[in-house]
Design a protein around this nucleic acid. Structure first.
Length: 478
RNA sequence: GCUCCCAUCGUCUAGCCCGGCCUAGGACAUCGCCUUUUCACGGCGGUAACAGGGGUUCAAAUCCCCUUGGGAGUGCCA
Protein backbone atom coordinates (compact mmCIF):
# COMPACT_ATOMS: atom_id res chain seq x y z
CA UNK A 1 0.00 0.00 0.00
CA UNK A 2 1.40 3.37 -0.91
CA UNK A 3 1.61 5.82 1.89
CA UNK A 4 -0.49 8.95 1.56
CA UNK A 5 -0.45 11.41 4.43
CA UNK A 6 -1.86 14.86 4.79
CA UNK A 7 -1.56 18.04 6.75
CA UNK A 8 -4.89 19.79 7.09
CA UNK A 9 -4.64 23.27 8.52
CA UNK A 10 -7.45 25.73 9.04
CA UNK A 11 -6.66 29.08 7.51
CA UNK A 12 -7.93 31.00 10.52
CA UNK A 13 -4.59 32.39 11.59
CA UNK A 14 -0.90 32.04 11.17
CA UNK A 15 0.83 28.67 11.09
CA UNK A 16 1.19 27.56 14.69
CA UNK A 17 4.38 25.84 15.82
CA UNK A 18 2.32 22.84 16.90
CA UNK A 19 0.83 22.63 13.43
CA UNK A 20 4.24 23.05 11.89
CA UNK A 21 5.46 20.14 13.95
CA UNK A 22 2.74 17.76 12.78
CA UNK A 23 3.26 18.97 9.23
CA UNK A 24 6.93 18.07 9.55
CA UNK A 25 6.16 14.60 10.88
CA UNK A 26 3.77 13.97 8.01
CA UNK A 27 6.25 15.27 5.50
CA UNK A 28 9.04 13.14 6.92
CA UNK A 29 6.91 10.04 6.93
CA UNK A 30 5.94 10.55 3.30
CA UNK A 31 9.56 11.08 2.34
CA UNK A 32 10.79 8.17 4.41
CA UNK A 33 8.33 5.77 2.79
CA UNK A 34 8.34 7.18 -0.71
CA UNK A 35 4.72 8.19 -0.23
CA UNK A 36 2.78 11.32 -1.01
CA UNK A 37 2.21 14.31 1.21
CA UNK A 38 -1.03 16.18 0.69
CA UNK A 39 -1.96 19.64 1.87
CA UNK A 40 -5.65 20.02 2.47
CA UNK A 41 -7.16 23.31 3.51
CA UNK A 42 -9.92 22.92 6.06
CA UNK A 43 -11.82 26.13 5.56
CA UNK A 44 -15.34 25.01 6.37
CA UNK A 45 -15.60 27.70 9.02
CA UNK A 46 -16.34 30.48 6.56
CA UNK A 47 -16.51 33.10 9.28
CA UNK A 48 -12.93 32.71 10.39
CA UNK A 49 -11.20 31.34 7.32
CA UNK A 50 -9.26 33.78 5.17
CA UNK A 51 -7.42 33.21 1.95
CA UNK A 52 -4.53 35.37 3.11
CA UNK A 53 -3.94 33.02 6.03
CA UNK A 54 -3.93 30.06 3.69
CA UNK A 55 -1.31 31.71 1.54
CA UNK A 56 0.75 32.73 4.53
CA UNK A 57 0.65 29.26 6.06
CA UNK A 58 1.80 27.71 2.81
CA UNK A 59 4.60 30.21 2.62
CA UNK A 60 5.65 29.39 6.18
CA UNK A 61 5.56 25.67 5.43
CA UNK A 62 7.84 26.20 2.48
CA UNK A 63 10.09 28.40 4.55
CA UNK A 64 10.52 25.46 6.93
CA UNK A 65 11.58 23.30 4.04
CA UNK A 66 8.33 21.41 3.66
CA UNK A 67 6.87 20.87 0.26
CA UNK A 68 3.81 18.85 -0.69
CA UNK A 69 2.81 16.73 -3.64
CA UNK A 70 -0.82 17.70 -3.85
CA UNK A 71 -2.57 20.81 -2.59
CA UNK A 72 -4.74 23.78 -3.52
CA UNK A 73 -2.07 25.12 -5.83
CA UNK A 74 -0.76 21.70 -6.84
CA UNK A 75 -3.55 19.80 -8.54
CA UNK A 76 -3.56 16.04 -8.09
CA UNK A 77 -5.99 13.24 -8.80
CA UNK A 78 -8.04 13.80 -5.66
CA UNK A 79 -8.85 17.49 -5.72
CA UNK A 80 -10.07 20.00 -5.07
CA UNK A 81 -7.96 20.35 -1.96
CA UNK A 82 -9.90 23.14 -0.35
CA UNK A 83 -12.89 21.94 1.62
CA UNK A 84 -14.94 24.99 0.79
CA UNK A 85 -14.82 23.77 -2.81
CA UNK A 86 -16.06 20.31 -1.92
CA UNK A 87 -19.38 21.15 -0.33
CA UNK A 88 -21.35 19.17 -2.92
CA UNK A 89 -19.34 16.06 -2.19
CA UNK A 90 -20.04 16.21 1.54
CA UNK A 91 -23.70 16.91 0.95
CA UNK A 92 -24.02 13.95 -1.35
CA UNK A 93 -22.43 11.60 1.16
CA UNK A 94 -24.48 12.96 4.03
CA UNK A 95 -27.70 12.48 2.08
CA UNK A 96 -26.65 8.95 1.28
CA UNK A 97 -26.27 8.31 4.99
CA UNK A 98 -29.74 9.69 5.61
CA UNK A 99 -31.12 7.37 2.98
CA UNK A 100 -29.48 4.44 4.66
CA UNK A 101 -31.01 5.47 7.96
CA UNK A 102 -27.60 6.24 9.48
CA UNK A 103 -28.25 9.93 9.77
CA UNK A 104 -31.32 12.16 9.97
CA UNK A 105 -32.59 15.66 9.41
CA UNK A 106 -32.80 17.75 12.55
CA UNK A 107 -35.07 20.78 12.67
CA UNK A 108 -34.33 21.81 16.24
CA UNK A 109 -33.61 25.48 16.76
CA UNK A 110 -30.67 26.81 18.71
CA UNK A 111 -33.03 27.60 21.56
CA UNK A 112 -34.37 24.08 21.66
CA UNK A 113 -30.88 22.66 21.67
CA UNK A 114 -29.86 25.02 24.42
CA UNK A 115 -32.84 23.99 26.53
CA UNK A 116 -32.01 20.36 25.88
CA UNK A 117 -28.50 20.87 27.15
CA UNK A 118 -29.65 22.71 30.27
CA UNK A 119 -32.12 19.99 31.09
CA UNK A 120 -29.45 17.36 30.75
CA UNK A 121 -27.13 19.30 32.98
CA UNK A 122 -29.77 19.72 35.66
CA UNK A 123 -30.45 16.01 35.63
CA UNK A 124 -26.69 15.39 35.53
CA UNK A 125 -26.90 13.44 32.32
CA UNK A 126 -24.36 13.85 29.53
CA UNK A 127 -25.57 16.66 27.25
CA UNK A 128 -26.43 14.41 24.34
CA UNK A 129 -28.97 15.19 21.68
CA UNK A 130 -32.30 13.62 22.49
CA UNK A 131 -34.62 15.56 20.22
CA UNK A 132 -37.59 14.06 18.46
CA UNK A 133 -35.98 13.91 15.03
CA UNK A 134 -33.73 11.07 16.09
CA UNK A 135 -36.85 8.97 16.23
CA UNK A 136 -37.60 7.13 13.01
CA UNK A 137 -41.31 7.78 13.26
CA UNK A 138 -40.75 11.45 12.49
CA UNK A 139 -38.63 10.91 9.44
CA UNK A 140 -41.56 11.19 7.10
CA UNK A 141 -42.55 14.46 8.66
CA UNK A 142 -38.97 15.55 8.23
CA UNK A 143 -39.08 14.85 4.51
CA UNK A 144 -42.22 16.95 4.22
CA UNK A 145 -40.73 19.87 6.11
CA UNK A 146 -37.67 19.60 3.94
CA UNK A 147 -39.76 19.59 0.80
CA UNK A 148 -41.48 22.69 2.10
CA UNK A 149 -38.10 24.34 2.12
CA UNK A 150 -37.38 24.32 5.84
CA UNK A 151 -33.76 24.38 6.88
CA UNK A 152 -32.38 21.38 8.72
CA UNK A 153 -29.07 20.10 9.93
CA UNK A 154 -28.06 16.54 9.20
CA UNK A 155 -27.20 14.67 12.35
CA UNK A 156 -25.39 11.37 12.61
CA UNK A 157 -27.24 8.63 14.41
CA UNK A 158 -24.62 7.34 16.80
CA UNK A 159 -24.65 3.54 17.07
CA UNK A 160 -25.00 2.20 20.58
CA UNK A 161 -21.78 0.28 20.89
CA UNK A 162 -18.18 0.77 21.88
CA UNK A 163 -15.34 1.35 19.45
CA UNK A 164 -11.71 0.31 19.55
CA UNK A 165 -8.89 2.31 18.08
CA UNK A 166 -5.44 0.89 17.52
CA UNK A 167 -3.39 4.00 17.61
CA UNK A 168 0.16 4.17 16.39
CA UNK A 169 1.41 5.82 19.54
CA UNK A 170 -1.37 5.31 22.11
CA UNK A 171 -1.87 1.64 21.40
CA UNK A 172 -5.30 0.14 22.01
CA UNK A 173 -7.83 2.77 23.01
CA UNK A 174 -11.36 1.76 23.89
CA UNK A 175 -14.15 4.28 23.52
CA UNK A 176 -17.10 3.10 25.58
CA UNK A 177 -20.67 3.17 24.42
CA UNK A 178 -22.60 6.41 24.90
CA UNK A 179 -19.49 8.50 25.00
CA UNK A 180 -20.89 10.96 22.47
CA UNK A 181 -24.34 11.97 21.39
CA UNK A 182 -25.65 12.38 17.87
CA UNK A 183 -23.49 15.00 16.26
CA UNK A 184 -24.00 17.29 13.31
CA UNK A 185 -22.66 16.33 9.89
CA UNK A 186 -24.14 19.18 7.89
CA UNK A 187 -25.13 22.48 9.44
CA UNK A 188 -28.57 23.87 8.73
CA UNK A 189 -26.79 26.39 6.55
CA UNK A 190 -25.86 23.50 4.27
CA UNK A 191 -22.21 23.64 5.18
CA UNK A 192 -20.50 20.53 6.47
CA UNK A 193 -18.75 20.18 9.80
CA UNK A 194 -15.12 19.26 10.45
CA UNK A 195 -15.45 15.65 11.62
CA UNK A 196 -17.47 14.74 8.57
CA UNK A 197 -15.35 16.53 5.97
CA UNK A 198 -12.26 15.11 7.47
CA UNK A 199 -13.41 11.54 7.11
CA UNK A 200 -14.99 11.94 3.69
CA UNK A 201 -11.80 13.54 2.42
CA UNK A 202 -9.48 11.04 4.04
CA UNK A 203 -11.46 8.27 2.38
CA UNK A 204 -11.70 9.95 -1.01
CA UNK A 205 -8.11 11.10 -0.97
CA UNK A 206 -7.00 7.60 -0.04
CA UNK A 207 -5.15 8.74 3.04
CA UNK A 208 -3.26 5.81 4.56
CA UNK A 209 -1.98 7.36 7.78
CA UNK A 210 -3.35 10.19 9.84
CA UNK A 211 -0.62 11.80 11.91
CA UNK A 212 -2.04 14.58 14.03
CA UNK A 213 -2.12 16.08 17.52
CA UNK A 214 -3.52 14.23 20.50
CA UNK A 215 -6.22 16.86 20.84
CA UNK A 216 -7.97 14.92 18.07
CA UNK A 217 -7.93 11.64 19.95
CA UNK A 218 -11.50 11.93 21.16
CA UNK A 219 -12.63 13.18 17.75
CA UNK A 220 -11.41 9.89 16.44
CA UNK A 221 -14.37 8.13 17.99
CA UNK A 222 -16.79 10.16 15.87
CA UNK A 223 -14.62 9.65 12.86
CA UNK A 224 -14.45 5.90 13.39
CA UNK A 225 -18.24 5.87 13.34
CA UNK A 226 -18.31 7.79 10.10
CA UNK A 227 -15.78 5.52 8.43
CA UNK A 228 -17.94 2.60 9.40
CA UNK A 229 -21.10 4.25 8.11
CA UNK A 230 -19.36 5.07 4.87
CA UNK A 231 -18.26 1.48 4.54
CA UNK A 232 -14.61 2.44 4.53
CA UNK A 233 -11.61 1.27 6.50
CA UNK A 234 -10.10 3.86 8.76
CA UNK A 235 -6.49 4.80 8.06
CA UNK A 236 -3.72 4.15 10.55
CA UNK A 237 -4.10 6.69 13.29
CA UNK A 238 -1.06 8.25 14.95
CA UNK A 239 -1.83 10.71 17.70
CA UNK A 240 1.21 12.69 18.60
CA UNK A 241 1.58 14.28 22.03
CA UNK A 242 0.86 17.96 22.39
CA UNK A 243 3.13 20.92 22.92
CA UNK A 244 2.51 22.77 26.16
CA UNK A 245 3.87 25.84 27.94
CA UNK A 246 6.10 26.12 31.00
CA UNK A 247 3.00 26.18 33.20
CA UNK A 248 1.96 22.87 31.59
CA UNK A 249 -0.98 24.59 29.96
CA UNK A 250 -1.88 24.54 26.33
CA UNK A 251 0.61 26.59 24.38
CA UNK A 252 -0.73 30.08 23.85
CA UNK A 253 0.46 33.56 23.10
CA UNK A 254 1.39 34.31 26.67
CA UNK A 255 4.07 31.61 26.47
CA UNK A 256 5.85 33.65 23.84
CA UNK A 257 6.04 33.19 20.12
CA UNK A 258 3.61 30.54 18.92
CA UNK A 259 3.47 31.27 15.22
CA UNK A 260 6.13 30.40 12.72
CA UNK A 261 6.09 33.93 11.33
CA UNK A 262 7.37 35.30 14.59
CA UNK A 263 10.43 33.08 14.36
CA UNK A 264 11.11 34.34 10.88
CA UNK A 265 10.93 37.85 12.21
CA UNK A 266 13.26 37.06 15.06
CA UNK A 267 15.73 35.73 12.48
CA UNK A 268 15.64 32.09 13.46
CA UNK A 269 16.90 29.61 10.89
CA UNK A 270 14.13 27.49 9.39
CA UNK A 271 16.23 24.36 9.66
CA UNK A 272 16.80 25.05 13.36
CA UNK A 273 13.12 25.53 14.13
CA UNK A 274 12.26 22.38 12.20
CA UNK A 275 15.04 20.50 13.98
CA UNK A 276 13.91 21.59 17.42
CA UNK A 277 10.25 20.89 16.73
CA UNK A 278 11.11 17.31 15.73
CA UNK A 279 12.85 16.81 19.05
CA UNK A 280 9.70 17.48 21.03
CA UNK A 281 7.95 14.16 21.37
CA UNK A 282 10.14 12.26 18.96
CA UNK A 283 13.68 11.01 19.38
CA UNK A 284 16.44 10.23 16.96
CA UNK A 285 17.43 6.54 17.03
CA UNK A 286 21.03 7.54 17.68
CA UNK A 287 19.99 10.25 20.10
CA UNK A 288 21.36 12.94 17.85
CA UNK A 289 19.90 16.32 18.50
CA UNK A 290 21.26 18.37 15.64
CA UNK A 291 20.13 17.38 12.17
CA UNK A 292 18.41 18.62 9.05
CA UNK A 293 15.10 17.31 7.78
CA UNK A 294 17.01 15.87 4.87
CA UNK A 295 19.19 13.80 7.20
CA UNK A 296 16.14 12.69 9.13
CA UNK A 297 14.33 11.17 6.17
CA UNK A 298 16.43 8.02 6.18
CA UNK A 299 15.95 7.34 9.90
CA UNK A 300 12.46 8.67 10.53
CA UNK A 301 9.89 6.21 11.77
CA UNK A 302 6.63 6.24 13.65
CA UNK A 303 7.85 4.12 16.55
CA UNK A 304 9.86 6.78 18.27
CA UNK A 305 7.12 9.08 19.49
CA UNK A 306 6.76 9.66 23.20
CA UNK A 307 3.33 9.71 24.72
CA UNK A 308 3.55 12.55 27.17
CA UNK A 309 3.17 16.21 26.25
CA UNK A 310 6.32 18.27 25.81
CA UNK A 311 7.07 21.67 27.26
CA UNK A 312 8.24 24.08 24.65
CA UNK A 313 11.62 25.43 25.74
CA UNK A 314 12.88 28.53 23.98
CA UNK A 315 16.34 28.18 25.55
CA UNK A 316 17.05 24.94 23.79
CA UNK A 317 15.61 26.23 20.53
CA UNK A 318 18.13 29.06 20.71
CA UNK A 319 20.95 26.65 21.32
CA UNK A 320 19.83 24.51 18.37
CA UNK A 321 19.73 27.64 16.26
CA UNK A 322 23.27 28.51 17.30
CA UNK A 323 24.43 25.05 16.30
CA UNK A 324 22.95 25.41 12.84
CA UNK A 325 24.30 28.92 12.52
CA UNK A 326 27.84 27.71 13.15
CA UNK A 327 27.56 25.20 10.36
CA UNK A 328 27.18 28.04 7.87
CA UNK A 329 30.20 29.36 5.98
CA UNK A 330 31.22 32.98 6.33
CA UNK A 331 30.00 33.61 2.80
CA UNK A 332 26.57 32.23 3.59
CA UNK A 333 26.44 34.21 6.79
CA UNK A 334 27.24 37.44 5.00
CA UNK A 335 24.58 36.74 2.38
CA UNK A 336 22.01 35.98 5.07
CA UNK A 337 22.89 38.99 7.18
CA UNK A 338 22.22 41.25 4.22
CA UNK A 339 18.63 40.06 4.17
CA UNK A 340 18.06 39.52 7.89
CA UNK A 341 19.49 42.67 9.35
CA UNK A 342 17.96 46.09 8.68
CA UNK A 343 20.15 48.00 6.31
CA UNK A 344 20.78 50.86 8.68
CA UNK A 345 22.46 48.46 11.11
CA UNK A 346 24.37 46.47 8.59
CA UNK A 347 27.57 47.92 7.18
CA UNK A 348 26.38 47.59 3.61
CA UNK A 349 28.98 50.05 2.41
CA UNK A 350 31.78 47.84 3.70
CA UNK A 351 33.86 45.59 1.51
CA UNK A 352 33.07 41.92 1.25
CA UNK A 353 36.37 41.20 2.95
CA UNK A 354 35.41 43.33 5.91
CA UNK A 355 32.09 41.52 6.15
CA UNK A 356 33.70 38.10 5.99
CA UNK A 357 36.14 39.06 8.73
CA UNK A 358 33.27 40.35 10.76
CA UNK A 359 31.44 37.02 10.48
CA UNK A 360 34.56 35.07 11.28
CA UNK A 361 34.97 37.09 14.43
CA UNK A 362 31.42 37.11 15.72
CA UNK A 363 29.86 33.88 14.55
CA UNK A 364 30.96 32.05 17.67
CA UNK A 365 29.24 34.61 19.82
CA UNK A 366 25.79 34.62 18.30
CA UNK A 367 22.87 32.21 18.30
CA UNK A 368 20.58 34.23 16.04
CA UNK A 369 21.32 36.52 13.14
CA UNK A 370 19.83 39.35 15.15
CA UNK A 371 22.37 38.76 17.92
CA UNK A 372 24.95 40.37 15.68
CA UNK A 373 23.30 43.77 16.18
CA UNK A 374 24.92 44.74 19.49
CA UNK A 375 28.27 43.56 18.18
CA UNK A 376 27.91 45.66 15.07
CA UNK A 377 26.92 48.56 17.25
CA UNK A 378 29.96 48.12 19.45
CA UNK A 379 32.23 48.49 16.43
CA UNK A 380 31.22 52.07 15.84
CA UNK A 381 30.52 53.09 19.40
CA UNK A 382 32.95 55.26 21.29
CA UNK A 383 31.08 54.83 24.51
CA UNK A 384 32.99 53.69 27.59
CA UNK A 385 31.27 50.75 29.23
CA UNK A 386 31.93 51.29 32.90
CA UNK A 387 32.62 48.34 35.14
CA UNK A 388 34.62 47.61 38.24
CA UNK A 389 37.20 45.82 36.20
CA UNK A 390 37.43 48.67 33.73
CA UNK A 391 37.91 51.26 36.45
CA UNK A 392 40.63 49.13 37.92
CA UNK A 393 42.48 49.03 34.62
CA UNK A 394 42.05 52.77 34.18
CA UNK A 395 43.59 53.40 37.56
CA UNK A 396 46.88 51.81 36.54
CA UNK A 397 49.78 54.11 35.83
CA UNK A 398 50.61 51.97 32.78
CA UNK A 399 47.21 52.58 31.26
CA UNK A 400 47.65 56.35 31.03
CA UNK A 401 51.03 55.72 29.42
CA UNK A 402 49.42 53.46 26.87
CA UNK A 403 46.71 56.03 26.20
CA UNK A 404 49.09 58.82 25.35
CA UNK A 405 51.25 56.41 23.38
CA UNK A 406 48.25 55.34 21.30
CA UNK A 407 47.18 58.92 20.79
CA UNK A 408 50.46 59.71 19.09
CA UNK A 409 50.48 56.51 17.10
CA UNK A 410 46.93 57.07 15.85
CA UNK A 411 47.64 60.66 14.83
CA UNK A 412 50.34 59.51 12.42
CA UNK A 413 48.03 57.11 10.57
CA UNK A 414 46.53 58.16 7.25
CA UNK A 415 44.51 55.00 6.57
CA UNK A 416 40.89 54.55 7.41
CA UNK A 417 41.39 51.21 9.13
CA UNK A 418 44.22 49.65 11.05
CA UNK A 419 45.54 46.21 10.17
CA UNK A 420 46.43 43.28 12.38
CA UNK A 421 50.08 44.11 11.66
CA UNK A 422 49.72 47.65 12.93
CA UNK A 423 48.12 46.40 16.12
CA UNK A 424 50.96 43.92 16.57
CA UNK A 425 53.40 46.75 16.01
CA UNK A 426 51.79 48.76 18.81
CA UNK A 427 52.07 45.82 21.16
CA UNK A 428 55.75 45.38 20.41
CA UNK A 429 56.54 49.04 20.62
CA UNK A 430 54.67 49.53 23.87
CA UNK A 431 56.51 46.58 25.32
CA UNK A 432 59.90 47.85 24.21
CA UNK A 433 59.55 51.62 24.65
CA UNK A 434 57.24 51.81 27.64
CA UNK A 435 58.34 48.61 29.34
CA UNK A 436 54.76 47.47 29.86
CA UNK A 437 53.90 43.82 29.51
CA UNK A 438 51.49 41.06 30.40
CA UNK A 439 48.07 41.89 31.71
CA UNK A 440 48.95 45.59 32.01
CA UNK A 441 49.72 45.72 28.33
CA UNK A 442 46.82 43.69 26.98
CA UNK A 443 44.11 45.01 29.23
CA UNK A 444 45.43 48.55 28.93
CA UNK A 445 45.32 48.35 25.15
CA UNK A 446 41.89 46.82 25.18
CA UNK A 447 40.36 49.37 27.47
CA UNK A 448 41.93 52.32 25.69
CA UNK A 449 40.96 51.17 22.22
CA UNK A 450 37.58 49.57 22.85
CA UNK A 451 36.28 51.14 26.05
CA UNK A 452 35.20 47.69 27.19
CA UNK A 453 36.93 45.29 29.60
CA UNK A 454 36.42 42.19 27.48
CA UNK A 455 35.89 41.08 23.91
CA UNK A 456 37.44 39.20 21.02
CA UNK A 457 41.10 39.24 20.10
CA UNK A 458 42.25 42.80 19.44
CA UNK A 459 44.14 41.96 16.27
CA UNK A 460 40.94 40.74 14.71
CA UNK A 461 38.59 43.20 16.33
CA UNK A 462 40.36 46.51 15.77
CA UNK A 463 40.66 46.29 11.97
CA UNK A 464 36.86 46.35 11.86
CA UNK A 465 36.59 49.73 13.54
CA UNK A 466 37.47 52.96 11.77
CA UNK A 467 40.51 54.83 13.01
CA UNK A 468 38.40 57.90 13.68
CA UNK A 469 36.40 55.96 16.21
CA UNK A 470 39.60 54.58 17.75
CA UNK A 471 40.94 58.13 18.11
CA UNK A 472 37.77 59.25 19.74
CA UNK A 473 37.87 56.40 22.23
CA UNK A 474 41.47 57.04 23.19
CA UNK A 475 41.01 60.78 23.48
CA UNK A 476 38.22 60.28 25.99
CA UNK A 477 40.70 58.64 28.31
CA UNK A 478 43.49 61.05 27.88
C1' G B 1 -19.29 16.18 36.44
C1' C B 2 -18.49 12.41 32.59
C1' U B 3 -15.06 10.09 28.89
C1' C B 4 -10.25 9.41 26.88
C1' C B 5 -4.97 10.10 27.26
C1' C B 6 -0.35 10.81 30.02
C1' A B 7 3.43 10.34 34.30
C1' U B 8 12.09 9.04 34.16
C1' C B 9 16.85 14.93 36.26
C1' G B 10 14.24 22.15 36.38
C1' U B 11 13.41 21.11 30.69
C1' C B 12 13.64 17.70 26.09
C1' U B 13 14.46 12.66 26.24
C1' A B 14 17.03 7.11 26.08
C1' G B 15 15.64 2.75 28.50
C1' C B 16 9.59 0.36 28.95
C1' C B 17 6.45 -3.19 24.12
C1' C B 18 10.26 -8.49 24.61
C1' G B 19 11.58 -7.66 33.40
C1' G B 20 18.04 -9.04 34.96
C1' C B 21 23.38 -5.83 31.09
C1' C B 22 20.31 0.62 35.02
C1' U B 23 25.32 2.04 40.25
C1' A B 24 19.20 4.90 35.09
C1' G B 25 22.45 7.16 29.56
C1' G B 26 22.43 11.71 26.35
C1' A B 27 21.08 16.97 25.39
C1' C B 28 19.51 22.16 27.15
C1' A B 29 19.98 25.05 31.50
C1' U B 30 23.05 25.45 35.92
C1' C B 31 27.79 25.01 38.78
C1' G B 32 33.22 24.02 38.77
C1' C B 33 37.88 23.25 36.20
C1' C B 34 40.97 23.48 31.66
C1' U B 35 41.83 26.34 27.20
C1' U B 36 41.89 31.72 25.92
C1' U B 37 46.85 37.06 29.29
C1' U B 38 40.04 39.14 28.57
C1' C B 39 35.21 37.45 26.41
C1' A B 40 33.07 33.79 23.42
C1' C B 41 33.68 28.93 21.20
C1' G B 42 35.56 24.32 22.69
C1' G B 43 37.10 20.35 26.21
C1' C B 44 36.60 17.89 31.04
C1' G B 45 33.84 17.16 35.42
C1' G B 46 29.74 18.07 39.19
C1' U B 47 24.56 18.81 41.06
C1' A B 48 20.04 16.68 39.45
C1' A B 49 14.95 11.91 37.93
C1' C B 50 12.14 6.36 37.65
C1' A B 51 5.09 10.78 41.30
C1' G B 52 3.09 7.71 45.77
C1' G B 53 1.14 3.05 47.45
C1' G B 54 0.12 -1.93 46.77
C1' G B 55 0.78 -6.43 44.08
C1' U B 56 3.23 -10.35 40.42
C1' U B 57 8.42 -12.26 40.34
C1' C B 58 14.42 -15.15 42.50
C1' A B 59 14.56 -10.14 40.10
C1' A B 60 10.40 -4.25 38.35
C1' A B 61 11.98 2.30 35.66
C1' U B 62 10.19 -1.86 32.75
C1' C B 63 4.11 -6.13 33.89
C1' C B 64 -0.93 -5.45 36.86
C1' C B 65 -4.16 -2.53 40.27
C1' C B 66 -5.23 1.84 43.17
C1' U B 67 -4.20 6.92 44.57
C1' U B 68 -2.41 11.56 43.26
C1' G B 69 -1.07 15.01 39.65
C1' G B 70 -1.32 16.89 34.62
C1' G B 71 -3.48 17.18 29.61
C1' A B 72 -7.50 16.70 26.04
C1' G B 73 -12.57 16.22 24.65
C1' U B 74 -17.55 16.90 26.06
C1' G B 75 -19.96 22.78 19.76
C1' C B 76 -24.66 23.63 13.87
C1' C B 77 -15.30 25.39 15.92
C1' A B 78 -11.22 22.96 13.67
Amino acid sequence: MTVRVRFAPSPTGYLHIGGARTAIYNYLYAKATGGKFILRVEDTDLERSKREYELKQIEDLKWLGIDYDEGPDKPGDFGPYRQSERTEIYLKHAQALVEKGLAYYDFCTDEELEAMKERAQKESRPPHYDGKWRNEQFWEEAQQKLAAGEKAAIRFKVPQKSYVLNDGVRGRVVFPEKMVGDFVLIRSSGLPVYNFCCVVDDVLMKISHVIRGEDHLTNTLRQLMIYEALGANAPEMVHVSLLIGKDRQKLSKRHGATSVTLYQEETYLPQALANYLCLLGWSHPEEKDIFTLEELISVFDLNRFSKSPAIYDMEKLKWVNGQHLRKLSNEELVAQMQTQIPEEHWYHQQTQEWKLNCMELFKEQIELYADILPHLESLKSSEIVKSEKLNDVLSWESTSQIASFLKTELSTLKEEYVTAEIVSGWMDKAKKDLGIKGKNLFMGMRVCLTGVDHGPDLKQLLPLTSIDVLRERVSQLG
